[in-house]
Amino acid sequence: MAGGAASGGSAATDTYKEARNWLLLPSWVYLGAFVLVPVIMMLIYSFLTKEFRGGVVWEFSTAAYDQFFFDRGLFGDEPARIEWTYITIFWRSIWQAGAATLLALAIGFPTAYFIATRPEQARPMWVFLITIPYWVNLLIRTVSMKFMLRDSGPLNDFLIGTGLINDPISIINTNFAVQLGLFYSYLPFMVLPIYASVERYNFSLSEAAADLYASKWVTLRRVLLPAVKPGVIAGCILVFVPSMGSFLAPDLLGGAKNFMIGSLIEEQFKGNAGNWPFGAAASMVLLSMVLIVLMIFARQQAKAEKEAS
């Protein structure tokens, strides 16, 4: 073992150290040109003046952000009041994403735990079963959900058939339908990180707790949960972040009343009616939110790792 420790620990694997920059060049150039530069362009666009037929005029303006947060009346000459329309849409996005995250946690945690406690050879198969649906086209999954939730759809048929309800409940075009759709879209993202952390968890800690008279539920709450918290947080982030900006679920399942920020953004770029700077500004607000969440998360994870070591 001495050899392994000395060779593996001290030097990172550096076989291709000399060629490093050449090997990285294609990804730097490509992602720089077609991801990083576009995001910067978007930031610039959000500070430009809108052109009436879509597109922009190259004149600096904070009108897009102003429109997002403040109402200055029809002609823009009244004193500024908070504009609730877009903040409400934003707030609804957070609320919907949060609800979907909680739903996913309620189902995802027990599932992840169950899979992680299977015999080692059986686990990859379970994980595979959970991941397959993620790789199916999101659009098709959302359409399937729409089909399922219809008033005369299979879910209502099933519930009536079992005698639980007499008349179909209308789920489609409600907030709940959107929550269900988001939950369904990103459920595998909740299961996988929790699974990974429960699998790493040392179950002799639970045995020690049981030995010291703790019941299973107390052990779960006081011993296991703190240990797997980073995985749970990671799962919540992975569901919450894409849910926030999702477009398909609210568009197909929510109907016109249950607008989320994704739809608001999309509308700004459709045809000639849109407002590009406003769309770019709304995108920037969303992006900032997401980056803040990710940064808090990264700090938390770093702290958790420090505590663990």
Partner: peptide, 18 residues
């Protein structure tokens, strides 16, 4: 990993603008 961190709709907007 930037394309994974940026919400898809935001990446779509950015690419269109670009």
């Amino acid at each position: 990993s930037l394309p994974l961190m940026v919400p898809e709709i935001v990446l779509a907007v950015a690419t269109l603008i670009f």
